[in-house]
């Protein structure tokens, strides 16, 4: 199981490293969204600082949709999903492998976005551990739900449109939780960010557990 997880994750990351789609397209897209928010909010520094947490996580979610689509485009290309099914690897191992690769990519993306936000919006960080923990846990939730819906959408002709409409509503709690925790960590809203982190943790646990169970059902059919 662990062997297969590492194999799949390693394969995905190696392909991303080679093809540079994540660094060449997803990351620039994410920065672009940050800039667009700046335009949309009329470069109002106060507003941008106030809403840094929300804008950051909306950007992460949009970019994550692209990363997930990319992750499963690999498998749809040239019948590779059939090949994965033929390989005899446990579906749960494929799930964890692909989710792990997504987590790694999303974490790198979040670091980049964090730098972008720091430069463009100029927020102040008051609770750095909370910031890091929130990003970590939320990313696991996003990657788990994204991997599950990614495989569902992968084989469909309508995959580009069905993925966001399914994924974004189930990630609403993640968006809310991560935004609020960031609000606390950045000192913009007086809430208890660690409680929100607990909620994020619960969400991540549910998605990871259900994802590992249901991935096989979807891999068979999509």
């Amino acid at each position: 199981m662990w062997h297969d997880v590492r194999l799949i994750a390693g394969k995905d990351l190696r392909i991303e490293w080679r093809s540079q789609v994540a660094t060449g397209q997803v990351a620039p897209f994410a920065i672009l969204v940050l800039v667009l928010f700046g335009f949309a909010l009329d470069a109002d520094t106060v507003a941008l600082r106030t809403f840094t947490g929300g804008l950051y996580w909306v950007t992460v979610l949009f970019s994550a949709v692209l990363a997930i689509q990319r992750s499963f485009a690999l498998e749809s290309a040239d019948g590779n999903r059939d090949a994965l099914r033929l390989s005899g690897i446990e579906p749960a191992a494929i799930f964890f492998g692909k989710a792990t690769a997504l987590v790694v990519q999303l974490v790198l993306l979040e670091v980049l976005l964090g730098a972008g936000v720091a430069v463009l919006y100029g927020p102040s960080v008051e609770d750095f551990p909370l910031l890091v923990a929130t990003a970590g846990v939320a990313t696991i939730g996003v990657a788990a739900a994204g991997t599950l819906y990614g495989v569902l959408a992968a084989g469909l002709r309508v995959r580009e449109t069905i993925l966001p409409i399914l994924l974004l509503p189930v990630l609403a709690p993640v968006l809310i939780g991560a935004t609020r925790a960031f609000d606390d960590a950045l000192g913009t809203v007086a809430v208890n960010g660690w409680n929100w982190l607990a909620l994020l943790g619960l969400t991540a646990v549910v998605y990871v557990a259900f994802g590992a169970l249901a991935f096989g059902v979807l891999l068979e059919d999509s």
Partner: peptide
Amino acid sequence: IAALNIPIVRFSVDW
């Protein structure tokens, strides 16, 4: 998944 989400959504929006 949608049904599992009902309590989570409810809880998060509540907070």
